[in-house]
Computed example of a mutant assay.
Amino acid sequence: MHKIVILGAGYAGLMALTSVVGRTKKRDDVHVTLVNPSERFTERLRLHQVAAGRPVADFRLPDMLEGTGVELVRGWVTGIDATARTVRVDDEHVLTYDTLVYALGSVADTAVPGADEHAYTLDNAQNAALLAQRLTDPDTKTVAVCGSGLTGVEVAAEIAEAHPGLTVELLGRGEPGADFGPKAKAHLDATLDRLGVRVRAGVEITKVLPDSVALAGGGSVPADVVVWTSGVHVSPLPAAAGLEVDERGRVITDAALRSVSHPEIYVVGDAAAVRQTWGELHGTCQSGMPTGAHAGMSIARQLDGKEPKPFRFGYIHIPVSLGRGDAVVQFTKPDGTPRRWSLRGKRAVWYKETVSSAPWPTCGRMMRHPATASVWPHGGRRNR
């Protein structure tokens, strides 16, 4: 029995699971185990909606896995022994593997003093729900969103639209939408202004306090609530296991997405340092899902005695929600730099909702009916 263990049920992990199960369903010599701390699949793309008190769909892993033969193990991965090929879960039991798919992703980087103690993050649905509850507190008047990247933009816009009585400030080193073309950037700026979001670019946050954030060079911004969206980091588990990692702790992979030091381990999503001809992937759902699909296909090829193919990918767009009624979509070159074209307003809302609609009911059907597995791409340009 060939034991495949997949760590993490985020976008990349579930796509790897779907891909490998769909392609090995007819085999009786393969056992697949999925390890995740929760029975719920969290749509991280929609956590800013949860934080603003918006309802979102509730997807449960046992329902999705019913009839697939996949074993679900609930728990936190606390260690990997790459020599013995074992995974420790909750420091209580050990799983053995022949092939491992590492898809544990990343979490908010709260290294700035006070961020852990005084700021909310959107790493999971529980944190987002706690933030949503806090925003309804009558004592909450001001919200500081720290980090002017696209996550920060979506959070600030969603909160400002859902809670028009709050003062929302977006703070960061760079201009929101700095990588957009002129039309998309202008629309983003105008929408944030319409929603009442106060943007402070060119600032560095040095400390988060209970009632404010301190800025480099002196001064501070008062805030009853602080939301931290400034950067992410990956788990130290792969480095501790002896896998070769880059300066950010991401596992260095070969062309087929296998660890260069431990080829029996595939690494997908945010935790992988994946190079393409145009440069390096950055952690997004748009690139994470194709890495998962490709890993699943590659594992199936190896089980059939074939060599895995190289992973090829290029970005095509950057879709950003600006509340429920507005959005902007910047189309890009494969390396993520902007093209001339963009969508704005209602057309962008429709486009983003279409490309980011939850695919997991379809994934469940694919795992139960392997003939449909071939409809999912394995590498190449993706629009999700």
Rank of each mutant, 00 (worst) to 15 (best):
T33E: 00
G336P: 10
H163E: 05
W76L: 13
S287A: 14
K333C: 05
E92H: 08
D28S: 15
L150V: 15
V197Y: 04
V274W: 04
G53W: 10
P113H: 04
V245S: 08
V227E: 04
S374C: 01
G147Y: 04
P290F: 05
V349Y: 06
W278I: 09
N36T: 07
V245G: 01
D224H: 06
K207T: 15
G314Q: 11
V5Q: 09
F180D: 13
L192K: 05
G147M: 02
P238D: 12
F41H: 14
H317G: 12
L303T: 03
E92S: 10
D193S: 15
G152W: 10
G69T: 09
V329I: 11
L215W: 03
K346S: 13
D246P: 04
D137C: 08
P62L: 08
T191E: 14
W278L: 07
I318Y: 09
T206D: 01
I299V: 15
G152D: 02
H118M: 01
R194K: 14
G181Q: 09
A300I: 13
L150K: 03
V226L: 01
Y266P: 01
I6N: 04
V56R: 06
G79E: 02
A190W: 04
W360I: 15
D139R: 02
D335A: 10
D193E: 14
G296I: 13
I252D: 12
F331C: 08
A272H: 05
L322F: 07
L61E: 11
A132C: 05
G288F: 12
D58L: 01
A129I: 06
G196T: 03
H233V: 11
L192S: 03
V50L: 00
H2W: 12
G380Q: 09
G314T: 01
V208F: 02
N124M: 03
N36F: 06
